[in-house]
Amino acid sequence: MSRLYRIIALFLALTATSPAFAWWDYGHRTVATIAMAQVTPRTRAAIRRLIAQSPTLRTPTCPIRSIEDASTWADCIKPLGDRFSYAYSWHYQNADICKPFDIKAACADGNCVSAQIERATRMLQDRSLPTRDRVEAFAFLVHFVGDLHQPLHAGDRSDRGGNDQPANYGVMAGKRNLHTVWDGLLADRAISTPPGGSLGILSELSPAERRAAVAGSVADWSRESWTVAQQAYADLLGGDGCGPQPAGRPTLMPDAITRDIPLLRRQVARGGLRLAQLLDEALGGATPDPSRLPRRRRG
């Protein structure tokens, strides 16, 4: 075994046994890159002004120098402990894939990713708030839109978003789980599959498909990602994502990987386009979809 292979194996072992960050860095940063390329010049200028004020967050170990840095800030601050521990549950929502979709049950108290996308958008729109609050809202929004489009952050089988669902990734055996596969191993392969990167992923969507992608509400997008989560479990568990657990550690087979790659690429594209739309509505003066008009949650 070469030294490089041992290093890679050690890295995979470590990441597989710890709580996975959604999309790892590559997925989040690609969503952010797509969004920055799609926003209006007015919005882009407003984003740069917010980024210039990012030192007000006082998180020097997690600097924000670009929208791509903002996309991973909410994961970067997790090790800061009590200071940001309140936000841990904001990264996901556990909508049961084996029951009818119910966003209200999955987010009864507002501490879930879809509610926090709406909250961050409202805060970003509110010019009366202190600059620091709006910078933080911007960073959370960029990250959480990416999270929502990682399907294991939108639906699961009461298994912590697939973290408790063992999974082999093709020939790669070991202590992995379905969440890790979709966060990084499959995501990295999908994003880099030709035509790779943000421009390659966007090139697969027609103008009509791009317009359709940004329609609807955050709840609509949640349902869509929840549906992809159903497919993720089905592909791992042999066609029935709600069936009994197979003996041993199930394997995501090569044909399922091939089938899932375009699904994941489409999720990244949707995330980037929708993030751009939300940023344009909050910062660029674009008219929002009526279903996304700012509203406050009732207690």
Rank of each mutant, 00 (worst) to 15 (best):
R6G: 10
R6I: 14
F11W: 10
L12K: 01
A16V: 07
P19F: 13
P19E: 08
F21N: 02
W23H: 15
D25C: 01
G27T: 09
H28S: 08
R29H: 08
A37K: 10
V39C: 04
V39I: 13
T43Q: 03
T43C: 00
R48T: 12
I51W: 01
Q53K: 06
S54D: 02
L57P: 02
R58L: 07
T61A: 13
I64S: 00
E68Y: 05
D69C: 05
A74P: 00
D75K: 01
C76D: 06
K78C: 00
P79Q: 08
W90K: 01
I97A: 07
K99G: 06
P100N: 09
P100K: 09
F101N: 09
D102M: 07
D102S: 14
N111G: 06
N111Q: 13
S114P: 06
L124C: 05
S128P: 03
T131F: 02
E136M: 10
A139T: 07
V142N: 00
L148T: 11
L148A: 05
A154W: 01
D156V: 11
R157K: 12
G161W: 01
G162Y: 04
D164G: 03
M172G: 00
G174N: 04
I191Y: 01
S192R: 14
P195T: 15
P195K: 04
G196T: 09
G197S: 06
L202N: 11
S203Q: 04
S206R: 08
P207D: 14
P207E: 15
E209F: 03
R211T: 15
W221M: 07
R223T: 12
W226N: 08
V228S: 03
Y233A: 09
D235K: 11
C242I: 15
C242S: 12
C242A: 12
Q245D: 15
R249T: 15
P250W: 11
A256V: 08
R259Y: 07
P262Q: 11
R265Q: 14
R266P: 03
Q267S: 13
A269T: 14
G271R: 02
L273A: 04
L273W: 04
L273C: 04
Q277M: 05
A282Y: 03
A286Q: 13
D289P: 02
R292N: 15
P294H: 09
